[in-house]
Structures are given as structure tokens and as C-alpha cells.
Nucleic acid binder design. Structure first.
Lengths: 111, 111
DNA sequence: CCCATATTCAACCGATCGGTTGACGAATGG
DNA sequence: CCATTCGTCAACCGATCGGTTGAATATGGG
């Protein structure tokens, strides 16, 4: 479950895989539907999905013939925390602070 | 300067390079000193440093014979922002909020 | 000047990566 | 039952990766 920083960062290093994550942000998808917009084989996409699952960034559940892919954003947490360790060098980081507040408060207001 | 997400994430995917960044968090270092704690050749470390510089995560400045390596934490910003796009799925993320506040306020208090 | 130090370059190596293709297995439905 | 759809497996390919070694290129100091 808790994948290493190695696997998470290397999973994120490929633009196809990042695009897949972005697509899954909107909704869960079947493997075939994930592959559709890409100009590469289904097998290639299937491999990318295995790598994303190995990094914990998605989970896959088979229902009938169809394997559904679901984003698991929590897997980014360890990587994010690691990166935050370097943020202390930024003078105040007001931008990030405001973005953070806007997101949290916006969520509270609308949820 | 502004490196791609590809180069940043793949630079971060290697544990040796992450350890180098961690070392540079404490202070600027010469190439030879960066290499010292690792059980691999100087040339290998030199290559790692080139990759980190290519990703914008460090800069290197030659003074005399010695090439100094300096952390550039801002290079993590784009990657961090990209990752934050997935954070909205986390219910409230109080942990991150508190960590953020602690860091920012702690800096203000001690600075 | 000459030698030591600091770092990179160049060639090489085996392993992994990202892709292909074709065969295969598993579930669906007329 | 049989054709079809969904997805993976296996073998293969060229390219890139992470490492080595040895030579080359500065630079500094006595």
C-alpha cells in the first residue's frame, strides 16, 4: 500500500502516466477508456496502469469483464511531505499559503 | 531554468539524488564533499549532480578549482503545484494545514 | 615549473524502460 | 455455443539509466 518515494516519483516522471492521473481526477475509468485518447497500444497503457498501481497512485477493481481504475490521491502524501521539507527555504511562501486557505475554505463553504 | 515536470520528477526518483538534496539542505557543498559519504565513484556523483542541475534543483558555481553545489528549492514549486491538484480529494487535510502553520509561524517566531 | 587536487569526459557495461506485436484467458451476450 | 470484448502475458526491440574505469582538463600551491 504505502509505496516508496522511488516508485511514486518515478511513476510521476512519465507524461503519459501524469495525463492518466489527470483523467482519473474527473471519474473512475475502465482500462480501455483510459487508453482511448492515447496513440499507443492498449498493452502499453495497461503497463502504465500497473506502474501507477504499484506506486499506490491508483487502485484497480475488476467487475465483470471490465477493470475499473480509481485515483488514490493519498499516495501523493509521502512525496508531498518530503518535498515540503525543502519549502522552508522560500521566504514566506504566501502564494502557497493563500492557495491552501482558498482551497480549504472554499471546500468548507461549498461542502 | 524552469525545468519540466518530467525532469524534476525523474531527478527525484533516485534515492542517491534525494539524499544529495537532503545534504545540500544543510549547506552548499563542493562536488568532492558531496561524493564522500557515498560508496560510488566521484564520476557517478558528478553525473547525478548534472541531472539535478538539469532539473533546476541545484545550481553549480565554479570558484577556483572547486565547483560549489547549491540547493534551489524553488524548482520544486511546479511539481508541488501539480501534486496539489490532487490534494483536493483529501477530506480536510488538517495534518498538512497544521504542519504548514507550524512551519510558517515557527519561522516567524525564530526569524 | 611541476605536482597535487578537483572535476569532467569518453567508452563501456548490464539492467531497466517504454513501446510493439501476437497469442492467450476470462467474461458477456445473441 | 460461439463470436466478441476486455485485458494481460510473453517475447522482442531500441533507448536510456546508473554505474565503472581510465584518460583528460583545469586550477592552485610550493
Amino acid at each position: 500500500m504505502a509505496a516508496s518515494l522511488d516508485t511514486v516519483f518515478s511513476a510521476l516522471a512519465d507524461p503519459t502516466r501524469r495525463e492518466i492521473l489527470r483523467m482519473l481526477l474527473e471519474d473512475d475509468m475502465a482500462v480501455t477508456d483510459v487508453a482511448e485518447p492515447f496513440e499507443m497500444s492498449l498493452a502499453a497503457i495497461s503497463k502504465h496502469l500497473v506502474i501507477l498501481a504499484g506506486a499506490g497512485l491508483i487502485t484497480q477493481e475488476k467487475r465483470g469483464r471490465v477493470k475499473w481504475c480509481k485515483l488514490e490521491p493519498d499516495a501523493l502524501k509521502a512525496a508531498s511531505v518530503w518535498m515540503q521539507g525543502f519549502g522552508q527555504f522560500e521566504p514566506v511562501n504566501l502564494d502557497a499559503f493563500e492557495a491552501f486557505l482558498a482551497r480549504e475554505l472554499g471546500e468548507e463553504a461549498s461542502g
